[in-house]
Design a binder for these strands. Structure first.
Lengths: 231, 231
DNA sequence: CAGTCCAGTGACAGTTTCGTCACGGTTTTA
DNA sequence: TAAAACCGTGACGAAACTGTCACTGGACTG
C-alpha cells in the first residue's frame, strides 16, 4: 500500500521534480503551493509524510509545523522541512518545533528520497514485513495467506486488512475509529457499525470450529486481539 | 527516565565533546571507540540511540548498521550516522541500510542535539497515561486491561474509570464529590449513593476470592486506596 | 443504651452498546 | 454474460451497563 506524501512548495518547478521522483518510487503525492491551503486540507488528506517548505507565501512552514504538532490526529504524520535557509539556528528551531528531519536546499533528489524512506520505514512499522505468528494464527503477506492451527482460512480483502491491523496492534485495544483509519484509509466516512460487522465476519472465519475467540470486545472502547496459545 | 545513547567514535576529542553535551541534556551516554567492541556490547547496553561514525578502524559503521538492523531486538534503536564523508552516495547508502538520520562532519553541536532529540521524540513518545502498578494490582490503558495478582479482571467502563482515579490518587483519601468529578465528568448531578454502589461493584470485582480489600472507607469523608503487597 | 448517621447491598427499570441478519449495490470471476 | 463474492448499512434484539431506591446493619454520639 502506497504511502501518501503531501508536498507543500511554492516553487512549481521544484514541486514537479519532487513529485515526479517520489511517484516513481511508488508514493502517492499531492502538491500544494500554499501554506493556508495545506493547513485547511491536511486533516482531510492525512498524509503519511509532509515535505514542508519553510518559506511559504502566507504562513510559514514553521508555524504550520507548530500547529500540526498540536493536533493529536496528526502526531504520526512525519514532517520533513525543506528550505534554502541554511542557518543552524533555523534547523534547530525546526527540529525542536516538531519536524522529524530537515533538508537544506539545494538538495540531491536521491538523498531526499532516502530520507523520506527512512522516515516512512519508521512511520509504518505496523505493516508486517514478513510472516507474523501470534499464538495459533499465522499471516503471510507475501502469499496473502492466513492459517489458524495450521489450517488455511479464506478471508476477503477487508477482513485480511483488518487482521493485519489487529496483529500489528496485538494485545492493545483498538478503537473503531482507528480501525476505520487503518483498514479503510481512504474512507473516513465509514460507519462504525460497519466495523462491527466486519469484526463479526473476521471472527466467524477465524473461529470456525473453535471455542476461543482471539478478538475481545472492550465495551465503549473497541476491540483487542490477543494471541491464543496453540493447542 | 533518561534515554541512553551509545557514541561509537574513534576520535577521542570529538567523543568527549559529544558526550559532554549530551549528558548536559540529561542523556545517559556511553562511548566506545571501537566498532568491534560496539558490536559485542550493543546487545547488552541496548541504547535508545547510537551515534555511529561511518569510518571506524576495524569494521565500518555501515556494516554495523546493516548487522544491527537484522536483529529484531534492536529494531527500535535509533541510528544516526556521523561522518566526514560528505558524498551523497554514502548518505543514501547509509539511510538505505537502516540509519534513521545522517549528519555530516563537521556538525554543529546544537544541530546534532536537536536531531538526537527529534529521533528520541519518536522513539519514546510521551504517553499521557501509562501502565500503573500498585501492589498486586496492575492497570494498562493501552490494552485496557486490569489484573490482580497476575489474573485478568473484567471491569465495566465506569468501574475502570474509577479504578484509574483511585490509582491516580493512591494512598490519598478521595471524597465522593471528587469521584463524581473524576469518574462522571459530564454528570455533576450524580447521586452520592451511586458512588457507593460503584465502589461496591469495583470492590466485588477486585476482591473476588481474596480477603484484602485495597479500598478503605473513610467514614464521613470518602474512600482511600492503598497498594496491597503481592502474595 | 437508644437514637441517629453512614455506608453496604439487592433489586429493578431504563439506557446504551454491540451482535447479527438481511438486503441491495458493486466488483470480481469463470 | 451470469454467477459468485464482496461490501456497507439499516433495523432489530440481546447483552451489558447504569443510576437509583429501599432496606439493613454497623458505627458513632450524647
Amino acid at each position: 500500500m502506497a504511502a501518501t506524501i503531501l508536498v507543500v512548495e511554492d516553487d512549481p518547478d521544484l514541486a514537479q521534480i519532487v513529485r515526479y521522483n517520489l511517484e516513481a518510487e511508488g508514493f502517492a503525492v499531492t502538491t500544494l503551493s500554499d501554506g493556508a491551503a495545506a493547513d485547511t486540507l491536511v486533516g482531510a488528506i492525512r498524509p503519511d509524510l509532509v515535505l514542508l517548505d519553510l518559506m511559504l507565501p502566507n504562513v510559514s512552514g514553521l508555524e504550520l509545523c507548530r500547529r500540526w504538532r498540536q493536533r493529536p490526529e496528526l502526531l504520526d504524520m512525519r514532517i520533513i522541512m525543506v528550505t534554502a535557509k541554511s542557518d543552524t539556528g533555523d534547523r534547530v528551531a525546526g527540529l525542536e518545533t516538531g519536524a522529524d528531519d530537515y533538508v537544506p536546499k539545494p538538495f540531491s533528489v536521491p538523498e531526499l528520497v532516502a530520507r523520506v524512506k527512512a522516515q516512512l520505514r519508521r512511520a509504518q512499522p505496523d505493516l508486517p514485513r514478513g510472516r507474523v505468528v501470534a499464538g495459533d494464527i499465522e499471516l503471510d503477506p507475501a502469499s496473502h495467506r492466513v492459517r489458524r492451527g495450521g489450517r488455511e482460512l479464506h478471508l476477503g480483502p477487508t477482513e485480511f486488512r483488518m487482521l493485519e491491523h489487529f496483529l500489528a496492534n496485538l494485545g492493545r485495544v483498538v478503537s473503531r475509529h482507528q480501525l476505520i483509519a487503518g483498514v479503510w484509509p481512504r474512507r473516513p466516512d465509514i460507519d462504525a457499525r460497519t466495523v462491527d460487522v466486519h469484526v463479526g465476519r473476521l471472527r466467524k472465519a477465524l473461529n470456525a470450529g473453535r471455542t476461543q475467540d482471539p478478538i475481545q470486545t472492550v465495551r465503549g472502547i473497541g476491540y483487542r486481539m490477543d494471541p491464543v496459545p496453540p493447542k
